[in-house]
Design a protein around this nucleic acid. Sequence first.
DNA 1: CAGTGAGCGAGCTTCCGCTTGACTT
Length: 822
Amino acid sequence: MSKNLVIVESPAKARTIERFLGKDYEVRSSFGHVRDLSKKQLGVDIEHGFKPNYEITPDKKKVVTDLKKSTKKAEKVWLASDEDREGEAIAWHLIKVLELNEERTNRIVFHEITQSAIEDAIKQPRTIDKNLVDAQQARRILDRLVGFELSPVLWRKVKPALSAGRVQSVAVRLIVEREKEIKNFKPTSSYKITALFDVKTDKGKGELAAELPKRFKTKEEAMAFLQKCQKASFTIEKIEKKPGKKSPAPPFTTSTLQQEASRKLGYPVSKTMTVAQQLYESGKITYMRTDSVNLSNMALANAKKEIMKQYGEQYSKTRKYSTKSKSAQEAHEAIRPTYLNHQTISGDDSQKRLYDLIWKRTIASQMADAQLERTNVTIGISTTDEKLSAKGEVIKFDGFLKVYMESSDDDEQDTPKGVLPPLTKGQVLDLKKMDAIQRFSQHPPRYTEASLVKKLEELGIGRPSTYAPIISTIQKRGYVTKEDRDGYPRKFEQISLSKERNINEETKTEKTGYEKNKMFPTDIGTVVNDFLMQYFQNIMDYNFTARVEEEFDEIAMGKKKWDEMIKEFYHPFHERVEETLEKSERAKGERFLGVDPKTGKNVYVKIGRYGPIAQIGDTESEEKPKFAGLRKNQSIETITLEEALELFKFPRTIGEYEDKELVVSIGRFGPYVRHDSKFYSLKKEDDPFTIEKDRAIELIEEKRERERKKTIRDFNDENGIKILKGRYGPYISMGRENYRIPKGKEAEKLTLEECKEIIEKSAKSGKGTKTTTKTAAKSNKSPAKTASKTKSTKSKTKSSSGGKTTGKSKTGSKSTSRKKTG
DNA sequence: CAGTGAGCGAGCTTCCGCTTGACTT
């Protein structure tokens, strides 16, 4: 039995630390926070000083019971969560939940996961920093108030089940505003002059590329310049050589790892984090959720050793990086390999590639600068004062570039500067070709997942542990989508001056506007953003988080009381919520497209209850208007009248098969064929406007074949009980519900009776694998359920559900118990 | 997974940050 119980946040960390501490110490983990504001209600008692109502998080119940058992056995409990706001709060919640006695409880923090650092920490126990805890409570409560008061406003004023929050709403704003900038962007064009010269060298022939630093606004000016050059001679006037250097980037943080993995490996943010988690859990890298660029002394020493061994002393340069952001807590190290002498690892391909990236970045950060020599050549033109310029770059010493070079987000790189041929001052050059090419200015780039994370980090919004979830939330809510866009052709002018000094004009075509994995706002995203911008500008302010962070810091320093800070924020905010509910119009993002030539009725597009729709006719008129949902790639902002009218051509009957009609239409999940009240999705290559009977039958038969392959046994039972083959092995299906087969039973040998029994049992226990689809909500016009009016509403819901929950399980209800996981 | 969209109006939805498995069909 251990005398001491140490509690940390992560089980992987617990394993490591246990090795250092020896048998007198048992190390367990809390798996992050164990307690949070009540999930169902507001969880904050506004009338009584914003008193928080904490509950043990459902999936932490077992953790808490286990920890409690361990504390009973231990003489001393050491709370070793991270040394930041959240970590301090975790420790405090643990004291409360585990009912720890202060006298035998110590709060400690590790600055490094090494034997000596841990022993040092044990020697310096302290008590809980309640001010820091209060700063966390203020953060938590503010976020809850904002999220749970703002979201219901959207349910009533835009669409049900939407959400808003301090972080996500600003993330969406960035994307919506960028899209608006792009939409309003008017590209301007100018003419860029490039020249290519033949140069004789010892080895034979070389080339020199040069360009005119200045650009011409018009074709006429460009033409005039080329005409001047027709009879010109070109002479080297100046050769300047300057030394230069490049320095390595600091080691990875969560956000820079996400960016580089996106640029270099093409990983979405979520994949980077999943793979990093795997590497962390198998002990190959340090903790992957960090904003610190700090490396431990041990890591610095090991990096040096590795660099000396592999590349030699001149490549080594020990560098201490410090985190710029003022909220830097240095609770963790940067993300680095645990063992820097392991250049490669075992694992799957993704793990190997991500590890390789981390290893290179870490090692490079401890390597010498690259030494360069930059050459600038000025070329005079005999017929004008304008000068051409050629640039070259030679690496004199590669330094860290031997291992790693950070990528950049810019699509368009400057023309690569290479080695120049040997040149001398006064040398006359032989023109091979000169071009004046029309170039267009670029709109600001759309965000990728990773560049959005970068921007959020710059604004101080979100934390390393939340970057990936933010990206997924705003996509799940339908505010933004990650998409590819095909480019479109664009014409440009080119004037060329040939070796023979003839001028030739051409109009050429290039592809532009191509996008890969970029973030686009949806119609819902735009409408919600505009609504929030109109009524809740303070929350949407890019500096809102920074401002409240300052106040949290004051609370942490004991200069301010947390409840006072919340009070000052809440009352004006709440008033605004009330006012908005009362006075604002429903935000539909409606756009009038024109008049339907067939019926003479007005055609609109707007946000309906289930998303963007087109509408023919007015709601006020006696005759009911007709509605049709927009296609996935269409948007309210860009759809034309003609495209909208096309949508009303469905449903289309295209023939009969097995005496049943074949009907083509477009539903929530895209175009489909309906036959015998079954649905068959159209493939990407099928066009719902033109698809014919034969192809539809093909699709039906394909699906039937798939179904047959999936079926292990079909009892032809009246309830439709079948045994099917799934991704996770065989299972029983009845109607729309699925049931797992208990262990030890063989799927092929199950009888109908046995299946019914399994279904029966599963229904009784209430959990298991039963899944049901909820029928869509019928309307959004629920009575006001926002915090203000809630007193009555809330107490009602409380009592009604309270009666049912006395038995402590919500299983009794046969209703739709849809399990919500991850 | 599935065909809606106004209107009766019950009872749903929602936040951010800290952590992993259990679960999926």
